[in-house]
Design a protein around this nucleic acid. Structure first.
Lengths: 125, 125
DNA sequence: CGAGTATTTAACTCTAAGGTTATATAACCT
DNA sequence: AGGTTATATAACCTTAGAGTTAAATACTCG
């Protein structure tokens, strides 16, 4: 389980493999067709597929001499879930921006009310 | 940009680094404290931190002889966004289940209405 | 300044990852 | 059976990753 997320993330760390997944999102296809866009040998692609399969990100069938590959998104769901836990941290900046805008607004209105306060109004960073 | 997602995913592929991020989610802290839970040397942890920093997942400050680390979630947001694109694929099974349940329900009611239709009612898979 | 603490860098080892070419396997088609 | 197509495996090379220990650096404090 812990292991599976390792496999997922390390599978996703390679651009060739991400491209393969992107292609598979359009639909099941053969190894040869998957290999076509890449400037690398078939065995290299075959290895990438093995990694993806091992990570559970693809399934392979058999259809005549073809071994069609198909996306399996379950591990992506897990990875997504892991990252999701940190969501508050990237939304924080929006919160800060929001808070900042609110402060600005407050300043605007208080400046209108009492014009006396001068500009050097430092805030904690 | 393409590169940065490589760095993010490969940084996340290591359990030590994920644990470090989890710790940092609780708040900024020193390298020594980060290293404490792990059975590995300081230089090893230091290297992990360098990887995380290079991926933009942490920031480091200076405070006396300490070099406090702090979570930076922006790359997580990107990674999350990348995975998010595949969301429909892991939700598909729920959709299928949903569709299945609807079919069952339909069958139930139609069975009640006209009891004549027999069971071998194949559907496309 | 000099000792102590926190952290990084250097130099090295070991294993795994990603690629290659050449060869094997599997199923198809006469 | 024998040739063709699709894919996988074997054996190999090169580089990167994760660890180690030992030494350097960057501060603090008395």
């Amino acid at each position: 389980m812990e292991d599976s997320i390792n496999n997922t993330f390390s599978a996703l760390a390679d651009p060739t493999r991400r491209a393969i997944l992107a292609r598979l999102a359009l639909g099941e296809t053969s190894v040869t067709e998957l290999a076509e866009p890449f400037e690398m040998s078939m065995p290299a692609v075959s290895k990438h597929l093995r990694v993806l399969e091992h990570a559970g990100l693809i399934e392979r069938g058999r259809q005549a001499q073809y071994r069609p590959c198909k996306l399996r998104a379950e591990p992506l769901r897990q990875a997504w879930g892991w990252i999701e836990e940190y969501r508050q941290f990237w939304e924080e900046s929006f919160d800060r921006l929001d808070a900042y805008l609110k402060r600005i607004q407050a300043d605007e209105s208080s400046r209108k009310k009492k014009e006396k306060r001068h500009a050097g109004n430092k805030r904690k960073r």
